[in-house]
Write a protein that binds this DNA or RNA. Sequence first.
RNA 1: CGGGAUGUAGCAUAGUGGUAGUGUUUACGGUUUGGGACCGUAAGGUCCGGGUUCGAUUCCCGGCAUCCCGACCA
Length: 413
Amino acid sequence: MRQSRLFTKTLKESPSDEQALNAQLLIRAGYIHKEMAGAYMLLPLGLRVVEKIKTIVREEMDKIGGQEFITTSMQKKELWEKTGRWSDDIVDVWFKSKLKAGGEIGFAWSHEEPIANMMKNHISSYKDLPIFVYQFQNKLRNELRAKSGIMRGREFIMKDMYSFTDTKEQHDTFYESSKEAYMKVFERLGIANDTYITYAAGGAFTEFSHEFQTLCNAGEDMIYLNKEKGIAINEEILTDDVLKEMYVTKDELELVPTAEVGNIFNFGRSKAEEVGLFYNNADGKKEAVWMGSYGIGITRLMGVLVEKFSDKDGIIWPKNVAPYSVHLIAIGDTTDKANELYKKLQNNNIDTLYDDRDARPGQKFADSDLIGIPTRVVISSKSIEAGGVEIKERAKKEAQIITEEKLFTMLNK
RNA sequence: CGGGAUGUAGCAUAGUGGUAGUGUUUACGGUUUGGGACCGUAAGGUCCGGGUUCGAUUCCCGGCAUCCCGACCA
């Protein structure tokens, strides 16, 4: 992408209506646009990051048997009434509207009801199970207070997966594999070392559900952590009984702020019973389907990554999610050479943002640091004289001059 | 939803009951060219409604919006 054609502009100063670091940097660098409190547009750079995160999640979900699909944002009142969750007194984040043709609809804050209901058309036998489906969908939640930039919005992208199994054993097997898949995702995003699986208050059907909590100052949760023992307990469920069960004392635990990046839980058979999702077992007997739910906050993850990976000059994206792999910068009268290298990078399928603007070096460097692409490649009279191009990692201070040949060897690795 | 704060140009800010200023940005001209350079010219603004007043961006009332703390996060 030629930066001269990129429509977004960078800002020198942070907008005054954002306190959260993630929103400040993402807005300044042109990744997102704040439409209103808790609702942000994804601009071209932001969309690329989100798509990278989605690709990682998608690959890991596919590996454990997930089938991707997509549901609607409009949902039927009757269905949620059936499960007792239409009332605003029960679910306080509903956005609702009226159809001109008559009747009321809700906007999706979660999707287990419609998906379970849809599955009635496709599940009739134990032979149809297990089924694992997932989607990336916008969730709409009428939060009383949006906060922390893109970390807690009223509209956000979530990956939600649902499992449909016929026995508890089959459910448990998948539940465990989802934990591994989730940790693999966080590993690929570079936050596995700071991410802990915690017990949390579950639904009405399990004593515990599990949350994936990433150490993050901007997070809105607190966990009790013992790094050495690898024990993490959600603040909301810490009781003497839990401590005993985990073989720790409170003195051994440190209270730290975290962001919930994932959440998995078990519905048992109850959800299926409520919506009428049954199958015939091998004996021809009618049974309700076991269900589980597995979420990852995609846009929240983008916020967490910015919170964790930045310095005073801007964002420092992990390689796997950066909007581009290389930021090519032409300085001075080196356009021909830079154009040539840009073409070569494209031919080698290396995602490149090419700063071909007629701007001063200082501005280009400042923008490059702000945008945070992992590898910066500069072509200038200085680098040409020295026989090549200058390469610098965003995360590092020192740059080096290498030949073009070596550049491609390094980048193709 | 309770408490606190704030609304002035694309962005950041100053100030005032009497023609609204600065930086940045944008456009044009010139000097520059390895860390947001400099000079000149120009464009661009008081959240909305009501009240007080000869006159309101300023004072008062109401609304809306945004941020922060708390509550909430099934």
